[in-house]
Amino acid sequence: MAIDKLILIWQSFPSLLRGTLVTIELTAGFLGLGLIVGIPLAFGGVYGNKFIAVTIISPFVKVFRAIPALVLLFLFFFGSASFGIEMSAFTAAILAIGFRSAAYQSQIFRGAIQSIGVGQMMAARSIGMSKLKAIQHIILPQALRLSIPPWTNEYAGILKDSSLAYAVGVTELMRQGRYIVARTFGNALLVYLVCAVIYFVLVYTGNKLLGLLEEKYKIPGYEVKKGARKVLERI
């Protein structure tokens, strides 16, 4: 009986691998979109026009953080059809969770920017840098470094959230698992355990890699000002 189980795992391997790949693609898409939209949102919120910050940035962040990821997925997926836009489930997922990640990432970067002392900006302006140059050369490099720990948290959260794409039919890891169970009338417990292991490995590896990144770009001697390592909340 045990052999049967092992054979089952062996045969399911390709499907699981495909699913894992899609999971990784989704994660990369979410984080990428989140980064591209999140950074401008953060800098806009801190250095930009107060009016825009209050009327556009703040509501965007509040709404995308308050609505559950699953609901956002449905809204983008079914909404696109309602408005006559052709959109694959994959695309809908990337947009929904990507924008959501942007809302969270903007808060991460905003926190990092605000923890950089105001003296840095003053010094940059005092040698004649424009606000834009000061942000580009002085604030941004420091903000990115300070953001790595909380961003690692976001990475883990997003990777796990990719499982939600199951609900709109994307063939990521969980859905592949479901198909395997259905196809083989197999042991659901085993299949989903294997899925769990794969997720764990992805999260663990990612955390380790981001940890290396943090080490590599650490500013020598510079202690994170906010005291001991904050226990990072899930988002």
Partner: peptide
């Protein structure tokens, strides 16, 4: 400046 404000990075 009193607090130096050297660019930390």
């Amino acid at each position: 400046f009193q607090d130096f404000n050297l660019f930390a990075h």
